[in-house]
Simulated assay, not measured.
Amino acid sequence: MVLFGLLPDSTVLNVVAILVATGFIWLGSGWLEESAEHLSAYYGLPAVVQGSIVVAVGSSFPELASVVFASLGGAFNMGVGAIVGSAIFNVLVIPALSGIVTDDELETSRTIVYKEAQFYMLAVSVLVVTFALAVIYAPVPGAPELTGSITRPLAVIPLLLYGLYLFIQWQDVSDHEAEVAPPGIRVGREWGRLAVGLLVILVAVEQLVHGVEYLGATFGIPEFLAGVTILAAATSLPDMLVSVRSARAGNGVTSLGNVLGSNTFDLLVALPIGVLIVGSVPIDFAVAIPMMGVLTLATVLLFAIMRTGLSLSTPESYALLVAYLAFVVWVVAETAGVTDLIRGA
């Protein structure tokens, strides 16, 4: 039911609920991002850690909430679709828009290329291995052939890798010589804004997931593809806002660090948290792996572009947009039955 049962379910009301919920996600994420930025400055965190941890985790909260609500509603495939679709959007569209809005080329760094990007590719690989282990050791009886159950012990594997990621970032913070914190930062107020932003996002995402589930059931859209398209685009808005604004301010490291840090958090934390809450969830390997393959190709493309001159030029930005357009065309073709690379979707 729309608005926690206050309004009846209908196509029009659910479309309105999705649009309104998206707006509140944007609003809450703005509060969250600003408070995270001020707190990072207050505690003297380096720019790459600010982008890849503090701001990234904050702007990734919609994806985390979408996985949790989708899992509780028995639609984990939609949650996986939202995470993977959002990751592809983040890797291709957000750096492209960030590169386009800057007056000059979007500058990156060796830290972004050789630490953040490569660790993110490792995160993709570990998630694929986790899915494969679920199919091999916990097959679901009576389900399609390549369907396995991701259990809590399996969900710990990506969480352990994220623990390693946090340890690496902590080492960078220890080696960093922090600047003097700017005056006027009210720490208590910023922590309060952060908490309110999280609460607004939590409520809005619950309505967003419900609306997408209703429309998917009404129009016969598979859960995974609904997550990849509608839900992924809506939950990626905070990441886009944060990165584009950082790029416009001339801080390419924070902008790209947010993209890669958000994706790392989504894959290694958001999905496992959904499993830990529910207990175990089925994953269709035939549905998930083709999308993970696309995500891998998109990540390799971004890695190659960032390494070329350690910058992102305007032509390269448009190339990333063209790549995302090709992905959308492929998803539409899959939905219409023109192609059949995603078996069982």
Results as ranks from 00 to 15, higher is better:
162 Y>L: 04
245 R>L: 07
240 M>N: 03
9 D>I: 06
207 Q>Y: 02
183 P>K: 12
69 F>V: 13
293 G>P: 11
69 F>P: 12
331 V>R: 05
174 S>L: 13
160 L>A: 14
120 Y>S: 11
53 I>Q: 07
111 T>D: 14
118 Q>M: 10
284 D>C: 11
119 F>H: 04
115 K>E: 09
196 V>L: 12
170 W>I: 14
102 T>D: 14
45 L>I: 09
229 T>I: 10
39 L>C: 10
21 A>S: 14
285 F>L: 15
283 I>T: 15
90 N>R: 00
128 V>R: 05
296 T>K: 00
65 A>I: 04
221 I>D: 04
204 A>H: 04
167 F>N: 08
187 V>Q: 06
284 D>F: 10
2 V>G: 02
43 Y>S: 12
43 Y>K: 06
272 P>Y: 07
108 T>F: 00
275 V>A: 02
95 P>H: 00
342 I>E: 15
31 W>M: 01
214 Y>T: 11
229 T>E: 05
97 L>H: 09
39 L>K: 08
197 G>F: 04
19 L>S: 11
205 V>I: 00
75 A>K: 14
41 A>F: 03
177 E>Q: 11
218 T>P: 05
254 T>Y: 01
211 G>C: 00
290 P>W: 01
65 A>K: 06
196 V>A: 04
13 L>Q: 03
269 V>S: 01
281 V>C: 05
111 T>H: 11
77 N>K: 07
92 L>T: 01
222 P>R: 14
165 Y>N: 02
307 R>Y: 08
12 V>T: 13
221 I>R: 00
150 I>F: 03
70 A>P: 09
77 N>V: 05
277 I>L: 01
36 A>E: 07
322 V>R: 00
135 V>W: 01
180 V>P: 02
137 Y>Q: 11
